[in-house]
Amino acid sequence: MRDYFPAARGVFDDLDAADTLELLGKAPTPAQAAKLTTGQISAALKRAHRKKNVTARAKTILGALGKQHLGQPDEVSVAYAASITALIAV
């Protein structure tokens, strides 16, 4: 995660928390995450059973994920995303 998706590491305190996994499952690449809306993030947080501060947390996540970050070439991001998606499925 540090190498290909630094924004996720910065916004999620616990990378194996239910809300983190829900969002990474929905948008496993930085490019996909940058396209998420507040509504999509809020819905993912609710699916992960977050009940408090959903809108505020969604806005915080959106702000962090929408920023430009140094990243990897698309091919590398896609490969990392496939690994993350597989790990979440297990």
Rank of each mutant, 00 (worst) to 15 (best):
A8Q: 08
L23W: 04
A89R: 12
L24K: 00
A58M: 06
D14W: 03
D74R: 11
L15A: 11
L70Q: 14
D16H: 12
V11C: 01
A48P: 07
V78I: 04
T85S: 13
F5C: 00
T38R: 03
G10E: 15
T60I: 09
A82L: 04
D13S: 10
R50V: 15
L65V: 00
H49S: 13
P28Q: 05
D74E: 15
P6T: 02
R47T: 11
D19N: 11
N53H: 08
K35G: 07
L23V: 06
G71K: 03
V76L: 03
P73F: 06
A58I: 00
V90E: 15
Q40M: 02
S83V: 07
I41R: 00
T38E: 15
K35S: 14
K52D: 15
S42C: 01
T55A: 14
L24G: 01
F5I: 00
Y4H: 10
I84D: 06
K52T: 13
D13K: 09
S77Y: 07
K26S: 14
T55R: 12
I61V: 09
V78K: 15
K59D: 13
A7V: 01
A56V: 11
D19Q: 13
Q72W: 05
S42Q: 10
T20M: 07
L24I: 01
L70Y: 11
A18W: 06
A44W: 08
F12R: 02
A17Q: 04
T85G: 05
L24F: 08
A27R: 05
L45A: 01
H49I: 01
V54N: 08
R2W: 07
F5L: 00
A44S: 13
A27E: 11
L23N: 05
S77W: 11
H49D: 15
V76C: 00
A34N: 06
M1T: 07
L21R: 09
G39V: 04
E22V: 04
L87Q: 12
A81K: 00
L70R: 09
A34V: 01
V11Q: 09
M1P: 11
A44G: 14
A58F: 06
T38Q: 12
D16K: 04
G10N: 13
K52A: 15
V54M: 10
T55P: 05
R47D: 15
T20C: 10
V54A: 03
V76P: 00
A89E: 15
Y4G: 04
L62A: 12
R50D: 10
K52H: 14
A58S: 08
N53F: 05
I84M: 13
G63C: 00
K67V: 08
L45F: 02
A64H: 06
Y80K: 10
I88P: 07
R50I: 13
V90F: 05
A31I: 03
A79N: 10
G25N: 10
T37K: 01
R2A: 14
Q32M: 14
A89N: 10
K59V: 12
A48D: 09
A86G: 08
A48T: 07
H69V: 07
G39S: 14
A17G: 03
I84H: 02
S83I: 06
A33L: 02
G66Q: 14
G39N: 12
E22F: 05
T37L: 03
K26I: 13
P6C: 02
D16A: 08
A31E: 15
A44M: 07
Q40I: 00
T37W: 01
Y80L: 10
I84C: 05
K67A: 12
